[in-house]
């Protein structure tokens, strides 16, 4: 059975099972990929989950970028495969250069753990395609380094190209232009600080994250149909 979504587990990741469960809850299938794997295997989407990969030593995401699996994740993304980084996963994507900018300590130097209001700023991404532009989503954030920074030219380009996919309704962490999540130009690589998997069930207090993960599942299916031979992505990524 082909797993639709591969969820990378680094030493220190702690949201990989939550993501797998949320994907399953939506009718998808997910498997965990250990970070030393040289290939992402036969998957149609990759998630880099939240946590503290490699202890967040040096900088968040700085060491995870060198995990063997990251070369495969990069190749998968370059093929057009959907890649989503959530929280720590977003930090890994910026450190690896797959997304622009960087995530610094929150303004105010406080760890923030609360459910906040976000706004869908662009539907041109594998994570927001099914959402309504301007929709308000209540999503949990849980981070110390969520303060997105980039130079002005990069921020302008992100906004002009519709690469800012999610914004904070009320900026909690000092992020430039209230950015909560961005995509690459093609929209297939996305990083967000809020945790959609923690808002995927009534029991968790919100189901607003479902539309994001459902978008990802649809993108995974579309990607699989684009490359019908499931071995293609595995071979290229190995």
């Amino acid at each position: 059975m082909t797993h639709q979504v591969g969820v990378v587990s680094f030493p220190g990741s702690n949201c990989e099972h939550d993501v797998c469960r949320a994907i399953s809850h939506l009718g998808g299938s997910a498997k965990i990929i250990w970070h030393t794997e040289a290939s992402v295997g036969e998957v149609d989407a990759v998630v880099l989950p939240g946590g503290f990969a490699h202890g967040d030593y040096l900088r968040t995401g700085a060491i995870a970028r060198f995990s063997p699996v990251m070369a495969a994740v990069r190749a998968f993304g370059e093929l057009g495969g959907p890649v989503v980084g959530i929280c720590n996963g977003f930090q890994v994507l910026t450190e690896s250069g797959m997304l622009p900018g960087a995530l610094r300590s929150n303004a105010g130097m406080r760890f923030i753990s609360e459910t906040i209001e976000c706004v869908v700023s662009s539907t041109h991404s594998v994570l927001t395609a099914n959402a309504v532009l301007g929709a308000r989503l209540f999503l949990p954030i849980n981070h110390y380094e969520g303060n997105f920074v980039a130079d002005e030219a990069t921020l302008d380009a992100l906004e002009e190209n519709g690469q800012v996919v999610l914004s904070y309704a009320s900026n909690p962490n000092g992020s430039s232009r209230s950015i909560a999540g961005i995509a690459n130009r093609a929209g297939n690589v996305v990083g967000i600080m809020p945790h959609p998997e923690r808002a995927s069930d009534e029991l968790l207090g919100s189901t607003d994250g479902q539309v994001l993960l459902a978008s990802l599942l649809d993108a995974a299916i579309a990607f699989a149909e684009r490359s019908p031979d499931p071995s293609v992505s595995a071979n290229v990524a190995s």
């Binding site: 040096l58 900088r59 700085a62 060198f66 910026t94 450190e95 622009p100 900018g101 960087a102 610094r104 920074v149 980039a150």
Partner: peptide, 8 residues
Amino acid sequence: RLLANPVI
């Protein structure tokens, strides 16, 4: 390449 992030 590692010790500093030139973006910040």
